[in-house]
Design a protein around this nucleic acid. Structure first.
Length: 478
RNA sequence: CGGGAAAUAGCUUAAUUUGGUAGAGCACUACGUUCGGGACGUAGAGGUUGCAGGUUCAAAUCCUGUUUUCCCGACCA
């Protein structure tokens, strides 16, 4: 690697935090604005979000959901209807107190999430079991006044999607909660190539006002956890607080059962921190705005002819591409392509063309192959599939190598202090142990996975030594 | 929100200690030569030194406040 690259992007093993900010800025994903925690998502970063939206939105619609748009402001009295909810969010909402020069009679917060807005609406439109289920989703921004902010990982203005549904039965609502969690899990695995632990949050970590919260938890390159999506089951708590009722088949009034689920542009941060390397971003083909970057080396008739031929073949195969026609030297273009993380690079130069070849380079391994011009697109198709799979397998292998089981508190302590990653232990189910582990080791519970969650070994809680109820993951979090 | 550090051209920075004409490299613009791992020549453009006050004959430099960024902690469904 040249000295110039080392200078521009801090090595991720030297200073991971600096590496992250270098990559998100140098890959043109994001820029800072003059408001803390309110970032500018630049076209290349936004294109990744658009792809996420496109793929998820299709899934949401296939599962019967409709998009709508709710207001941005919530009157204080409305936010206060559900007690746990307001207690959870009050410390981090932004308030609007003036309209022009006039002080408002009642202040309004900028939505930190839209449960109460949906409930206010649901109350008006739900009358009968025939109105259920109601399956809604909205793409919007929300505001949470975070104290510490970082691009994509924790911002004050958050670009996200929130699904809100109402059901006639407890079971149906719970099924919906888990169904959407599964949609997120599949998306992470198959599109983002990010392995996740899927499971239930503890009572301490669950959403304010929810009966149960589920999450998908990813591990970043440095072993720190990032929650990439959540799905909540509310029971009928909000419905009761908001007096939402429907007549069931027996002609009796009943409160419906509710869910909500969401994911944000934080997933872009995940992509960077799971797959990126010292040369920059590495994007899985299925989410990359451009799957191929074409770099002509030099400029003559033959090169242009082959360039056009390949462009046509890529278009025919529905493979998105970008051409770097700038006047930069090849070395500059290669380095630039690597910072941006285009999955495949194709180099068209006269030296290869004399033998009828072009060079194809995959970003994840930097492996180069030379193929005949008319086989280039076929080869690219094959590579894109391999890159997608290999990236997932590599991420999975790395993650699994950083998950440690601890049987005693001493062992857990030792691992927490010396090895980055997740720790998997027996747990009694009491918050006292969660609090102690947070205080002693700085670790928070991530989730209780759905599978292989039976206590093992002596079946005692790793912290208090009492009988364990389950196994659970612990980690530092972003 | 506490503790620390920083802010000078798009980027990296010099001048700040000791107040006295804001300077460079890269990037950018035009033309030309180049092109297989961060090219070269010639010419050019780019700054009320984050913002607001104060001290001074004079402030990038000293003082106060403020905003933003980074680090550590607290907080964070």
């Amino acid at each position: 690697m040249s000295e110039k690259q080392v200078k521009e992007i801090t090595s991720r093993d030297v200073d991971f935090a600096k590496w992250y900010t270098d990559v998100v800025k140098k890959a043109d994903l994001v820029d800072y604005s003059s408001v803390k925690g309110s970032m500018i998502i630049r076209p290349y970063g936004y294109a990744i979000w658009e792809n996420m939206q496109k793929i998820l939105d299709k899934k949401f619609k296939e599962t019967g959901h409709e998009n709508l748009q709710m207001p941005m402001f919530i009157p204080e009295s409305l936010l206060q209807v559900e007690k746990d909810h307001v207690n959870g969010f009050a410390p981090e909402v932004a308030w609007v107190t003036y309209g022009g020069n006039n002080k408002l009679e009642e202040r309004m917060c900028v939505r930190p999430t839209s449960e109460v807005l949906f409930c206010d609406h649901f109350k008006k439109i739900i009358n009968s079991y025939r109105d259920l289920p109601l399956l809604y989703n909205q793409w919007c921004t929300i505001v949470r006044w975070e104290k510490t902010t970082r691009p994509f990982l924790r911002s004050r203005e958050i670009l996200w999607q929130e699904g809100h549904t109402m059901h006639a039965s407890e079971k149906e609502a719970l099924d919906e909660t888990l169904r959407m969690l599964k949609v997120y899990e599949d998306f992470q695995k198959n599109v983002l190539a990010i392995p996740v632990f899927t499971g239930q949050k503890t009572d301490k970590e669950k959403f304010a006002g929810a009966e149960s919260t589920y999450a998908i938890e990813a591990m970043m390159y440095d072993g720190v956890a990032l929650q990439n999506a959540t799905s909540h089951y509310f029971g009928n708590g909000f419905a009761k607080a908001f007096d939402i009722k429907f007549l069931n088949k027996e002609n009796k009034l009943e409160n419906p059962y509710q869910t909500s689920w969401g994911c944000t542009t934080r997933m872009i941060g995940s992509l960077v921190m799971v797959h990126g390397d010292d040369r920059g971003l590495v994007l899985p083909p299925r989410i990359a705005p451009y799957k191929v970057i074409i770099i002509p080396i030099g400029n003559d008739e033959k090169i242009n002819e082959v360039l056009n031929e390949i462009k046509e073949d890529l278009s025919d195969s529905l493979i998105s591409y970008k051409v770097d026609n700038s006047n930069k030297t090849p070395g500059f273009k290669f380095a630039e392509a690597e910072v941006k993380g285009y999955p495949v690079r194709i180099e068209i130069g006269k030296r290869d063309l004399e033998e009828g070849l072009v060079t194809i380079v995959r970003r994840d391994t930097l492996e180069k192959v030379k193929v005949p011009v008319d086989e280039a697109v076929m080869k690219i198709n094959e590579l894109l599939i391999n890159i997608q799979n290999d990236m997932y397998e590599r991420a999975l292998k790395r993650r699994d190598s950083m998950v440690y089981e601890a049987d005693s508190y001493e062992e857990m302590n030792e691992i927490a202090k010396t090895k980055p990653g997740f720790i998997y232990t027996n747990w009694c189910g009491n918050q006292a142990c969660e609090d102690k582990i947070k205080d002693d080791l700085g670790l928070k519970s991530r989730c209780i996975p759905f599978e292989n969650n039976e206590p093992t070994g002596d079946k005692k809680c790793v912290c208090c030594g009492k009988e364990a109820k389950t196994k659970i993951y612990w980690a530092k979090q972003y």
